[in-house]
Design a binder for these strands. Structure first.
Length: 157
DNA sequence: GGACGTTTCTATG
DNA sequence: CATAGAAACGTCC
């Protein structure tokens, strides 16, 4: 079961279920937020669930809820924006992402930004792999990374 | 300072 | 060619 968290601005975070098997259904619910209009949350959440389901089947979500990335630094937001441009079935290396945001030598820092990504799946940090063909790492668990990539038909070699 | 979800550039054999 | 160091980035402890 996924848990979505919303702020005044939009979707602020997605919490992964720890066990892969328990997430067959792209179900989720909102974690109660204070001071955010309920109707906004309901609207965002509806979009979120839909987008999440779509993303989990390896396709590009038609619409995304507003994403609140205010928790991140300027660098991280640049990384996350670049990440959202990666289409399903494609992968990028950490270096390519670093290059895409104009910091060619920051591949490693990109890894850090990915790990800090508050919204997995919708911000496809799992499509970022090592340049040598390896998986790289994944904070939420490599199982997830493998599963998500497999969902999109990506060969892992 | 040290450690990371990395890469790339220099040696050295 | 294969292997080993080292340096560079941004963030957190």
């Amino acid at each position: 079961m996924f848990v979505a968290a919303y702020s005044e601005t939009g979707l602020a975070g997605l919490e992964f279920p720890t066990a892969v098997g328990s997430a067959r259904r792209a179900d989720s619910r909102d974690a109660g937020q204070r001071g955010v209009p309920t109707n906004s949350i309901r609207r965002w959440h509806e979009i979120t669930v839909k987008a999440l389901k779509t993303a989990l089947t390896g396709r590009t979500p038609v619409g995304l809820p507003p994403l609140d990335m205010s928790s991140g630094t300027a660098f991280q937001r640049r990384v996350w924006s670049a990440l959202r441009k990666i289409r399903p079935g494609q992968t990028r290396s950490y270096a390519e992402v670093a290059n895409a945001i104009g910091r060619p030598r920051s591949a490693r820092a990109v890894g850090g930004a990915c790990g800090a990504n508050p919204i997995p799946v919708l911000i496809p940090c799992h499509r970022v792999v090592s340049a040598n063909g390896g998986l790289g790492g994944f904070s939420a668990g490599l199982k997830w990374k493998r599963l998500l990539l497999a969902r999109e038909g990506i060969q892992l070699d």
